[in-house]
């Protein structure tokens, strides 16, 4: 889902005319094991040479490590985001703003504390990474599962199945999905009101409205792959449809799927942050970068650092994924001259 903006994914999709990112199905890389391996090793060599993409990759690894080991890091650092330093001298009792320069930056709180609640900002950012990655990751997984399954089914079986799935994708792609997502979240949130459901519904909404993109790509690839000799060969040897789909066709889709994944995750990170910014995403005490930005919006004239920190966290993470995804696409693209 896009929150009033295009995405790197759209850029890629558009550049490739939505026919397929990455591996060129018209090319001659029949997926014999040996050739396949060499293709991947070529791609890996290319990727390693792309310093910008590798930098993105390193940032991603760091980000994941921070998210996974947030509790450990928090313990080492000696602060936690759950503690509210409201009445222990860190906040000005008159107007609840952090005392001291730069929003209360100190030896104990390296990035200062939040206004009003006096929470440690560094630990909030670490746990915000968790929220962001979990939601973006699971939403992407949902899009993948739906998109690959339905795209594969449509492309492989063609006929009325294809017609049904393709038309559904067309309709979904021309839906004002943003409005419907916001409406859906509000409604479901209203009916249940529980935090865990909010998490699930955000993942669902981001994931569900994202599947037609990958669905289209997969369908296009499968349509041409199913006519290839190796599929014919497998069929003549009596392989079942399921076997052909999973053993012969899917391995050829890994390239585009991988590219799609690295470019959809940042898209979904922005989606989660945007929803949280609008106040319909995750709610406290679950930390979220978007939520912090929305909160900082009230104080940014007095405490600008509080605005920049979560903003930069989103920017750096999303950029890292985009750079890596871009590099990956180039590396997997046999036409690419780079």
């Amino acid at each position: 889902m896009t929150l009033s903006g295009p995405t790197e994914l759209e850029a890629v999709a558009a550049e490739d005319g939505l026919t397929g990112a990455g591996l060129d199905p018209e090319g001659d890389q029949a997926p014999q094991a040996i050739q396949g391996r060499s293709l991947w090793s070529i791609a890996w060599r290319r990727l390693r040479r792309d310093k910008v993409a590798m930098a993105g990759g390193i940032v991603i690894v760091l980000l994941v490590l921070i998210a996974v080991f947030a509790p450990l890091l928090q313990a080492l650092y000696g602060q936690d985001y759950q503690t509210l330093h409201q009445t222990d001298g860190l906040l000005d009792p008159l107007d609840s703003m952090p005392k001291g320069a730069l929003g209360g930056v100190s030896g104990a709180h390296w990035l200062g504390v939040t206004p009003v609640t006096g929470q440690d900002i560094l630990t909030l950012l670490m746990y915000g990474a968790r929220t962001s990655l979990i939601i973006a990751g699971l939403a992407t997984a949902l899009s993948l599962i739906l998109g690959v399954t339905l795209g594969l089914t449509a492309g492989y079986f063609r006929g009325w199945v294809d017609l049904l799935i393709s038309r559904t994708m067309d309709v979904l792609l021309s839906f004002p999905t943003l409005l419907l997502s916001i409406a859906l979240i509000t409604v479901v949130g209203y009916i249940s009101g529980a935090e865990i459901v909010r998490f699930e519904i955000i993942i669902f909404v981001l994931g569900f409205f994202g599947w037609p993109y990958i669905g289209r790509i997969v369908r296009g690839q499968v349509l041409s792959l199913r006519e290839k000799e190796f599929v014919e060969a497998a069929r003549s040897l009596g392989a079942s449809n399921l076997r052909i789909m999973f053993r012969e066709i899917i391995p050829n889709l890994i390239g585009p799927i991988l590219v799609y994944t690295t470019l959809t995750i940042p898209n979904n990170m922005l989606g989660e942050a945007g929803l949280s910014f609008l106040g319909i995403g995750v709610i406290p005490p679950t930390p979220s970068w978007g939520q912090m930005l929305s909160d900082a919006g009230q104080y940014f004239q007095i405490d600008p650092l509080y605005l920049f920190l979560p903003g930069l966290a989103i920017f750096i993470s999303v950029l890292a994924f985009n750079l890596f995804g871009d590099g990956l696409r180039d590396a997997l693209d046999p036409k690419s001259g780079r």
């Binding site: 759950q82 509210l84 929470q119 949130g189 209203y190 529980a194 935090e195 319909i280 406290p284 005490p285």
Partner: peptide, 29 residues
């Protein structure tokens, strides 16, 4: 929701009550 203070009130009360073993979960509309 949305509210600038609701979530923060919740966090404050949650932290305060946690001291005596009362645990709070948020419910919003």
């Amino acid at each position: 929701t949305p509210s600038e203070t609701g979530g923060k009130l919740f966090q404050t009360e949650k932290a305060a009550l946690a001291r005596v073993g009362i645990t709070l979960s948020p419910k919003t509309a």
